[in-house]
């Protein structure tokens, strides 16, 4: 498939290794992958605070950059940015090409699970990981079945992908509760946010895992911040790093 990478601003500037892992992984899986310069923010920083007007130029710049190269699908390694990009391209712009673009943006987990299912043989990896099922991916993108819902057959797409890695042990924290990041919430409500992040790290640690693995870099940044502050023996990583390593 011809894929255009959408690399959200936080990943581009603070976690470039997540973008490189995503790029290499998709290439190893046989996709043609391109990246266009000039990508900005999905607008989430502004729209999360209700500032729709302030997000428009950012969303338009992102849309323009993504349209530079024709592709079958746009793939991003960040769930909440995918939710915001889709929603904001639809509601904040009136350009039809932007609206059809919104329809083909996929988060990496859903791309590998639903759009171009991962069927490559994977190398074994002896490691115990704890899944960070962040809220936007879980409840907006449906990457898993949230614990509140009464569903006969719950799904977890991240687990489904990672369970293809031989010898990998997958655990999950006792609750799929929010990690407390929430964009500017992490600054505005520093006490509650910090407490939530600490509780989430403790829950991951209690699983006995060596690493927290997730699909949302912003939540991972928050959890990583606690791990670093407290000197907790946990790696914090995006799942693209794991898959790239074993593909």
């Amino acid at each position: 498939m011809k894929i255009a990478l959408f690399i959200p601003c936080l990943v581009n500037h603070f976690y470039p290794e997540i973008a490189r892992d995503t790029l290499e992984l998709l290439e190893k899986l046989g996709h043609g992958v391109s990246y266009t310069q000039g990508q900005t923010c999905c607008g989430q920083l502004m729209t999360n605070s209700g500032c729709l007007d302030q997000a428009r130029s950012s969303v338009e710049a992102l849309g323009k950059a993504l349209l530079k190269e024709p592709c079958d699908a746009v793939v991003a390694p960040a769930a909440s940015c995918v939710v915001a990009a889709r929603e904001n391209l639809e509601r904040l712009t009136s350009f039809e090409d932007f609206h059809s673009l919104a329809g083909k943006i996929f988060e990496l987990t859903e791309f590998l699970h639903d759009i171009a299912p991962l069927d490559h043989p994977l190398k074994p990896l002896r490691k115990t990981v704890s899944l960070q099922m962040s809220c936007h991916g879980l409840r907006q993108l449906g990457l898993g079945t949230a614990s509140e819902l009464v569903v006969a057959r719950p799904v977890n797409k991240l687990q489904a992908l990672l369970s293809r890695i031989p010898e990998l042990t997958i655990t999950q924290p006792s609750r799929d509760e929010c990690c407390g990041f929430g964009g500017t919430f992490s600054v505005d409500e520093r006490d509650i946010s910090g407490k939530m992040a600490n509780d989430k790290v403790a829950d991951h640690l209690a699983t006995g895992a060596e690493a927290i693995v997730g699909y949302d870099p912003s939540c991972l940044m928050s959890l990583g911040g606690v791990v670093s502050r407290k000197g907790i023996p946990l790696e914090v990583m995006h799942f693209s790093a794991l898959l790239n390593q074993v593909t």
Binding site: I7, V11, N12, H13, F14, Y15, P16, E17, A19, R20, Y35, Q37, Q39, S186, R190, S193, G194, K195, A197, N198, M221, S222, G224, G225, V226, S228, R229
Partner: peptide, 13 residues
């Protein structure tokens, strides 16, 4: 209650 991320040398772009 959290450290900032360790900044990489360069952006992905």
């Amino acid at each position: 209650s959290r450290d900032f991320p360790k900044p990489p040398a360069e952006s992905f772009a």
